[in-house]
Design a protein around this nucleic acid. Sequence first.
DNA 1: CGGGCTCTTGACTCAGCTCAAGATTTGTGG
DNA 2: CCACAAATCTTGAGCTGAGTCAAGAGCCCG
Lengths: 248, 248
Amino acid sequence: MGGVTAETGCLRLTPIRASRCAVCGVREASFCAVLSASELQQLHAMSSQKVFEPGELIVEEDAAVRQVANVLSGTIKLFKLLPDGRQQITGFLFGGDFLGPMLSGEYATFAEAVTRVELCLFDQDRLREQMDAWPHLERRLFEDATATLDRALDWMLLLGRKTATERVASFFVMLADRVASRDDVQLTVDVPMSRSDIADYLGLTMETVSRQISHLKRQGLLEPSGAHAFTLPDVPALRRIAGGNEPN
Amino acid sequence: MGGVTAETGCLRLTPIRASRCAVCGVREASFCAVLSASELQQLHAMSSQKVFEPGELIVEEDAAVRQVANVLSGTIKLFKLLPDGRQQITGFLFGGDFLGPMLSGEYATFAEAVTRVELCLFDQDRLREQMDAWPHLERRLFEDATATLDRALDWMLLLGRKTATERVASFFVMLADRVASRDDVQLTVDVPMSRSDIADYLGLTMETVSRQISHLKRQGLLEPSGAHAFTLPDVPALRRIAGGNEPN
DNA sequence: CGGGCTCTTGACTCAGCTCAAGATTTGTGG
DNA sequence: CCACAAATCTTGAGCTGAGTCAAGAGCCCG
């Protein structure tokens, strides 16, 4: 309604409303990838966008769920706290990832913007209605949950049994697997989070993370590439250090 | 077919075939709880039972999934290994729990019988067909996966940030929440797993677990009750030590 | 170009690990 | 039912990888 001018009239209404999805850079990476054009348009009609600035809290643990979201851009940290303030980051979300539980009325973790974050929000109740109506959507969200669980199990092995060196190597392998960009032959990963976020993700202290990164630099496995990025000259070697049962 | 005698004839056939489910002690705790009588009977027709002895390997990590199962009785440990043998237990399964991924062709962990285990097995392909046909079954399995994920996230906080005392207290709180039996006023938990399994679940060594259990005994929070059980005289106190954001 | 971040490095400490006895429990066969 | 061997569990003593505390180096932003 709002944006329709007299000149363009109703004819332009539908194209305009669908265009946000049409140009969405993460559509193929998000659950929207399984939707048909008409389903996408229905979902689009019930979505809204919102931006969060770095450090801004997006949701609190145990908060009642009203909205869930796709991450359009930016990095989010998901974390749990102990009463005395000790923090464990349980995962990071990047563009295309889904934020929020579909089968629960509460969030299991806090969520905070690490960088500037753009979200595409949906009312949980309305998305659930669509999930009930579209089995392929439910299946896709089930698959997302399964992938998240698998990653959590791998991380339990890291947190329970790996040494500091292995943990830091695993961290860069995880980034390589999830958000690497290949410029030329070099593999480069963006590291938007602070040393202390990395520490809270790996169950270490900031100082230990810093020491291990220095060590990997001296070994030539990590090269600073600008302020918040590293190139990884030898990912297989990193994987070996990470103690991986992961593929070569 | 096999068990039908001339005297009883076909009339007894259906009752006999359904009776295994009818007397199943974990039916209401398992995904079977969401099935109607006729659905249950269909599923029953494609199920088979199998027993594993203590220490027996049930599935290997990355093994192709052929069968999935409900745990009828006993305790199973799910675990991951590093190449040098370090072990992390990612969870235990008890009666009524579901074993196996539904949306993946591979197991994410090893599974080994801790005690004698009875399983009710299903062919994964055939159960998936039923899941496609019965949305309430898929929903239930999705809910199970969500609950497993929530527990994994709680455990990541434990593995990454809790002290040895907090971990051992958390272990007994977990048992109290999942498998406690109330005889009289006392809360009693069965502890079928070895000290070294507890250690591998908590990211500690056997010796540290043993010392912490001794310490909790001296504090009067843990009383041996037979060979493989403890009574927990003060669960709220244990919960406080566990550093819980869990409910009182 | 200076004040406040984040990050790095060093020196020392300590929680939990390792190594090593013993003590209990469990399982087995006579 | 008991004896005895094999596990499992407990406890002690000393060690060490990662944490703590503290200082200094970069870096960013106004």
